[in-house]
């Protein structure tokens, strides 16, 4: 069996609320109360204006593939034997860009396209563990 994927590690105060929410299968992002910017990656302050008042929201999990690569060679033990797999930036409809994997395709080189619509698919990592938000063709 392949080694486990690298998992988020804690304590890490900025991203902990995001990962805690994945245990409830909620994909969360923030907005700034002051300047209304969409904030992602998660953090305590707004990177647009420096404000400290932010609000958390649950994404609908629908978005578009901005770009992707199909990894053919990885020496990391969790990925070395996986075969070709797609890593992408997904633009969620709420306006944040998330790095993730595109799954549920037979041949990622042929089947994944920039601009294609995708939807969230949770990838369980074990009981009480965080779940990984991945995406499949919508």
């Amino acid at each position: 069996m392949a080694a486990a994927r690298p998992q988020p590690r804690f304590p890490e105060l900025d991203t902990q609320p995001f990962w805690d929410a994945t245990k409830r299968r909620e994909l969360m992002y923030q907005t700034c109360d002051g300047c209304h910017a969409v904030i992602f990656y998660p953090r305590r302050h707004c990177p647009e204006c420096g404000g400290r008042d932010t609000a958390w929201h649950v994404s609908r999990g629908e978005g578009t593939v901005y770009t992707f690569s199909v990894i053919m060679q990885s020496r990391h033990p969790a990925f070395a034997d996986l075969g070709a797999y797609a890593v992408a930036y997904v633009d969620l409809d709420e306006g944040f860009r998330l790095m993730s994997n595109i799954v549920g395709v037979a041949d990622p080189v042929q089947d994944v396209k920039c601009g294609m619509r995708v939807r969230l698919r949770w990838e369980d990592q074990g009981a009480d563990a965080v779940a990984l938000p991945m995406f499949e063709p919508a």
Binding site: P6, Q7, P8, E12, Y41, P42, S69, I71, M99
Partner: peptide, 13 residues
């Protein structure tokens, strides 16, 4: 742990 590791390491990039 950093915010970068936590948001980018799980995907195998």
């Amino acid at each position: 742990a950093t915010f970068v590791n936590n948001m980018e390491d799980p995907w195998g990039l």
